[in-house]
Design a protein around this nucleic acid. Structure first.
Lengths: 141, 141
DNA sequence: TCAATTAGTTATCAAGGGTAACTAAAAAAG
DNA sequence: CTTTTTTAGTTACCCTTGATAACTAATTGA
């Protein structure tokens, strides 16, 4: 019998492919979108903060931010600590954010249309629990 | 507010990382495990069948099968159609399958421990629905 | 029998991420 | 106050995964 993990994983590629197709219209991919999303919801941030939030290494975020700067979607602002790089969305970035956000919300609505609200809510609540349990696993090693 | 897709995606990396850590003990990764899983549950199969099932291109499966053959986990058996390559698990492959299966089941149990059975069941049932809806999206283009 | 389809391979490219080694700046120790 | 340690970020290099295009060999089917 198929397990939860297996079903979960088999859905990943179709979802990320669909999302990247959608994001392609704005010349970004999901990994870049994550950074824009973070900046929108946390305001100006450093690369270390973004990396910590997504649990990836610093060079990964360096690259993402570089690409977003080339696109003019984010910009660096001054900071007291001269080591760190304070990043925020530009006006253009904010505008793209709103457009993408609308598209993703609409997609999500279509994908979840036939799923009752309570079920949706339950499934929704399980993700952070599994995430928690995964973190506990890590601590034990 | 965070959407379902976002929560879903933020769980992917932790899960695949954990699984690959587990599978590393057997010198495989999740993508290779998928092929072994398919062969265990469908018996001897061709590359096209495996590719179709996981919705990936043929060259992707060519590579996976090549690696598994190098490991001695799968082998080619004869086939009427000389174009196709009939692949099945070797004895070693079967044995590795059983060990890995045990480990993954145990991991899944630990990750889902604190989630009530009904909730688990609901979350579990949503994946194929979303998958279906994604396929419908595709057809419209 | 000849054209079209099918199975599989190879080569090449892109996305995404990790590790190691490094620089520059700040913080902590002395 | 120096000196040492820690922290933020970057660069170079490598791995995994998958897609596309172009190809060969075998099979179907017109």
């Amino acid at each position: 019998m198929e397990g939860y993990l297996q079903r979960f994983l088999s859905l990943y590629r179709p979802i990320i492919t669909k999302l990247n197709e959608l994001l392609g219209h704005y010349e970004i991919t999901y990994s870049l979108w994550q950074v824009m999303y973070y900046l929108k919801h946390h305001g100006a941030s450093t690369l270390v903060e973004i990396a910590a939030h997504y649990e990836v290494e610093k060079p990964t975020i360096t690259r993402r931010v570089q690409k977003l700067m080339e696109h003019g979607f984010v910009e660096q602002i001054s900071s007291t600590d001269k080591r760190e790089k304070n990043i925020q969305l530009t006006e253009l970035g904010e505008s793209i954010y709103r457009d993408v956000r609308k598209d993703i919300t609409a997609l999500e609505f279509r994908l979840m249309e036939d799923i009752p609200e309570e079920e949706r809510h339950i499934a929704y609540g399980i993700f952070p629990k599994v995430h928690e349990n995964l973190k506990k696993e890590k601590e034990q090693h």
